[in-house]
């Protein structure tokens, strides 16, 4: 039991605590105030923020001028679809890692053998590219070359022991987007692809640039590592015996997962989803690079205000408030899960 604290001490900490809290929150508060002022009042706010009239006009203007609702729909679609997709991929994966762990690699090849195979694949690709004068304008050849690189690596990861697989999954989250930007940009933007003439396949049918067809899988992949890790840590807390009991009771794998595991892990699954909704909602790098109109989410919408015409602060503030309010509230509810999700179990 902790001892009682002197009232003086409590008072001091209350003052310091609230000062710090208000300072941290101030930019958000200030934006909220500006959102409800007229444009000209917003520019001279500090002197008169209590005396100037409050107004809702900015919200109407924002919607009218830039079709705010469309961005909300895009963001919502992006967030829900990518979260659902990640969930479908991550639940079986986390189940597998948590309940059927492998102490050793299931492959008979040694690490050096795998490295040799991958180097050989890279060598074959290199020679093929050299022979083709560094151009790949044959669809089949392109696919074969990509498979040559990816297939051995996939098989290697797939056969590693459980902690090896988990750490590899974590390491994919570490890849800087700058390293992937160029190929993703070119793949999405068919006009720029070096192997653009693939003969019989008309790539203009598959334009992924500025499309949810491209953004949803991308954001799913961005968050999948965190998804698997968080679910893994939640599943680990469920005793294996309960799943074994369900097997003894005649449950199929489907029933084991949907009737026993998922209901038991429901709080964990919910908080995993919440954290990933926050991350997907706020994603900016890929949104700014790969969307500009049809699939643009809210973070792109706000960035449009960086080169405005005329007075725009009140409208910027109104738009900002509309963009952050839902996620701020979700964030407040899931703050405790943040630690688990963003430290990969390294802090308990």
């Amino acid at each position: 039991m902790a001892r009682a604290q002197s009232p003086r001490r409590t008072l001091i900490f209350t003052l310091v605590g609230w000062t710090v809290g208000i300072l941290m929150f101030f930019p958000i508060f200030w934006t909220t105030v500006a959102a409800f002022k007229t444009e000209s009042d917003a520019y001279s706010l500090p002197q008169n923020f209590l005396t100037t009239p409050w107004t809702l006009e900015n919200f109407a203007i924002v919607q009218e001028r830039s079709d705010y609702v469309r961005y909300v729909i895009n963001t919502t679609l992006l967030v829900t679809l990518s979260t659902a997709l990640a969930l479908v991929l991550a639940i079986p994966a986390a189940w597998s890692l948590a309940f059927a762990p492998r102490a050793e690699s299931s492959s008979r090849l040694s690490g050096w053998a795998w490295i040799a195979i991958m180097l050989a694949a890279a060598g074959v690709s290199f020679v093929t590219l050299y022979v083709n004068d560094w151009k790949v304008d044959n669809f089949v050849l392109g696919v074969v070359l990509l498979l040559l690189v990816v297939a051995p690596a996939t098989l290697w990861v797939w056969t590693r022991n459980t902690s090896g697989t988990l750490l590899w999954i974590l390491s994919t989250k570490m890849m800087p987007p700058a390293g992937a930007l160029i190929p993703i940009y070119l793949i999405f933007n068919r006009n720029g692809l070096v192997f653009r003439d693939w003969g019989w396949i008309n790539l203009s049918d598959f334009n992924l640039m500025d499309s949810l067809w491209g953004m949803v899988p991308l954001v799913t992949l961005l968050n999948l590592p965190i998804f698997i890790w968080m679910l893994f840590t939640y599943f680990k807390e469920i005793p294996v015996a309960i799943l074994e009991a369900s097997r003894m009771d005649g449950a199929s794998l489907w029933n084991e997962i949907t009737r026993v595991l998922m209901p038991m892990a429901l709080p964990g699954i919910a908080s995993t989803c919440l954290l990933n909704i926050i991350l997907a909602w706020n994603e900016a790098f890929w949104s700014l690079n790969l969307t500009n109109k049809y699939a643009a989410p809210l973070s792109f919408f706000i960035s449009e205000y960086s080169s405005p015409e005329g007075q725009f602060w009140a409208k910027l503030s109104a738009a900002s408030i509309m963009a952050i309010a839902p996620i701020l509230i979700i964030g407040w509810f899931s703050q405790r899960q943040l630690v688990r999700g963003l430290t990969f179990g390294a802090v308990k």
Binding site: V20, G21, I22, M24, F25, P27, I28, T31, I278, W281, N282, A284, L288, L298, S299, F300, I302, S303, S320, A323, I324, I327, L328, I330, G331, W332, Q335, L338
Partner: peptide, 12 residues
Amino acid sequence: LVISPFFIMPTV
């Protein structure tokens, strides 16, 4: 109040 900034999208 203190953790709120983390949830604000970077562009905002």
